[in-house]
């Protein structure tokens, strides 16, 4: 599904991402972890095209998308959420989802319906999305007026509405309480079971260990480990990255 080959991004002298190889398969949750500043968010930003690569290659569904602008990557099936919530606060919950909605769904509509509120099937689709994310009662509220937990759900819902085949989640559990994290865990599993490929960046260790099928670890822009949650947990390099070396202490 998604293959990163020697992905590299330098900001001046800083090697934010330095030769990372990664593969995300359909129906799989790949956890991407690492200390602060290890290049996780930069990796996600590169995948969705927010800035150009220094070198390397991004292959998606067998096609090189490294040079495509962000909006064309979205239409090919890549959607994301942000670490710090980004919503259109002056628009309603419904409007936030409407434009994000997968364009394939929309193109089946005739132009008048497409541009003025969407036809029955598009509306029903948004309705189901709102139900799944427990936001149906907030449909006509301005996104900026929602509570924090609701905003997080709306962000997730908006990424989901795009019907992505690859979903990039950048710290979706940040600021959530235990109950909300359980719901998040369940939603991620549901989506994975539909065959979606999910790249999950997360600091919340329990969530990653629970939901990820595989985990890759970044440190100083390089991949230092990859494997099942248990393998990664016992990897000495990973322990060193997080805790420092025993001799240095």
């Amino acid at each position: 599904m998604l293959e990163l080959h020697r992905l590299t991004k330098h900001f001046g002298g800083v090697r934010a991402v330095d030769g990372v190889d990664l593969i995300v398969n359909p129906g799989e949750v790949l956890g991407l972890i690492g200390p602060n500043g290890s290049g996780k968010s930069t990796t996600v930003n590169l995948i969705c095209g927010l800035f150009p690569l220094t070198s390397g290659l991004i292959m998606f569904k067998g096609e090189d998308i490294s040079a495509l602008p962000p909006h064309e990557r979205v239409t090919r099936g890549i959607a994301r959420t942000f670490q710090n919530i980004r919503l259109f606060g002056q628009l309603t919950v419904w409007q936030n989802l409407w434009v994000a909605q997968n364009s394939a769904e929309q193109r089946r509509q005739n132009p008048v319906r497409r541009w003025f509120g969407g036809g029955g099937s598009a509306r029903e689709d948004i309705g189901r999305t709102l139900e799944f994310f427990d936001l149906a009662h907030k449909r006509d509220e301005l996104a900026g007026n929602l509570a924090f937990g609701e905003q997080r759900r709306l962000e997730f819902a908006r990424a989901f509405a795009a019907k992505p085949v690859l979903l990039l989640l950048d710290e979706p559990a940040a600021g959530m309480n235990a109950e909300e994290i359980d719901q998040l865990d369940a939603r991620i599993r549901t989506l994975r079971d539909t065959g979606m490929a999910i790249l999950l960046i997360e600091h919340h260790v329990e969530l990653v260990m629970s939901v990820a099928d595989r985990i890759a670890v970044l440190n100083f822009g390089q991949k230092i480990a990859e494997g099942s949650p248990a393998e990664v947990q016992n990897n000495p390099l990973v322990r060193e990255a997080y805790l420092g070396t025993a001799t240095a202490a």
Partner: peptide, 15 residues
Amino acid sequence: RMIGEDEVLAGLQGV
């Protein structure tokens, strides 16, 4: 309005 509020985010909605 999306472009006015956050054009990067608008681009990430396929706009």
